[in-house]
């Protein structure tokens, strides 16, 4: 028996992402979860700078374009004055993990009751594919043309594992959009993150391994394969910090 499938009204607009970009799938999942949790009239998105900014153009919801990297801080201010509103930051890896690593870590450190969605495509998409702190060793980017030299530039780090291991956060997970199965699993992660916030459990982060066909120089289907073959071995999928009620159950 088939199910009704309809893009939520919240984001039912043309978006200007490149063909095959993972952002579109993630945004739809977030919107589906918001509808299922009946939050569509109770939501604010502090949006990062980068390709994540493009969300602002198509979304029919309150959102604020934050200074580069500062979405977690903006979200903090929002949540503290309107604790009953659901606050979701939507950021890329460059925004959240490079220029915004301080704000991102400190929001997790405070266990701020917000949900952070980070789209990790291992490069700076908007500015044309420069190296990110999440670029893999030997990955070619426009600022690592011979491949990333980890000896000189550092090793890519795993943010959800980091905050799950070091901080008192509510929920931390990593998913991807490479297959229907993974998309469905990612939706469960996002829903858990939002539920954690709505229940006042604290900080939740969902990182998404997402393709950047344009800057990777691959067609969309090949880009998905690249995630399966190269990214997932370095960035394992799964839940790194589960919600307390789930653990008890």
């Amino acid at each position: 028996m088939a199910k009704e499938r309809k893009v939520p009204a919240l984001i039912d607009n043309p978006m200007s992402f490149c063909a095959g970009c993972g952002h579109g799938i993630v945004i739809r999942l977030v919107a589906e979860c918001i509808e299922e949790l009946n939050q569509q009239d109770n939501i604010i998105f502090p949006i990062g700078v980068g390709c994540s900014s493009l969300l602002g153009g198509g979304m029919v919801a309150d959102r604020l374009h934050c200074p580069h990297g500062r979405a977690a801080s903006v979200a903090t201010g929002m949540k503290r004055v309107t604790p009953d509103t659901t606050i979701i930051t939507y950021q890329g890896d460059g925004d959240a993990y490079n220029i915004g690593i301080s704000e991102s870590l400190n929001a997790a450190y405070r266990n701020e009751n917000i949900t952070v969605i980070t789209i990790n495509n291992t490069n700076f998409g908007m500015t044309g594919g420069q190296m990110s702190w999440t670029s893999l060793p030997d990955q070619k980017t426009t600022t690592s043309p011979k491949g990333r030299d980890s000896g000189a530039t550092g090793l890519p780090f795993r943010f959800p594992e980091m905050v799950a291991g070091q901080f008192d956060v509510a929920y931390a997970a990593r998913g991807t959009v490479t297959s229907p199965k993974n998309v469905n699993k990612l939706k469960k992660y996002i829903k858990n993150g939002l539920e954690a916030q709505i229940n006042g459990e604290g900080y939740s982060i969902i990182e998404v391994l997402s393709p950047c066909p344009t800057n990777w120089g691959l067609n969309p289907v090949k880009a998905m394969e690249q995630i399966e073959e190269q990214l997932i071995p370095y960035y394992p999928l799964g839940v790194f910090k589960n919600r307390k009620e789930k653990q008890d159950a």
């Binding site: 801080s73 903006v74 903090t76 201010g77 503290r80 704000e103 400190n106 405070r110």
Partner: peptide, 25 residues
């Protein structure tokens, strides 16, 4: 609400968030 921010940068951005929600920040 009062938050001791981790930096001046973060502090002003928190103010931005609260101001965006319509409160005196």
């Amino acid at each position: 609400s009062f938050v001791q921010a981790e930096s001046e940068v973060s502090g002003i951005n928190m103010v931005m968030g609260a101001a965006a929600c319509g409160f005196r920040a």
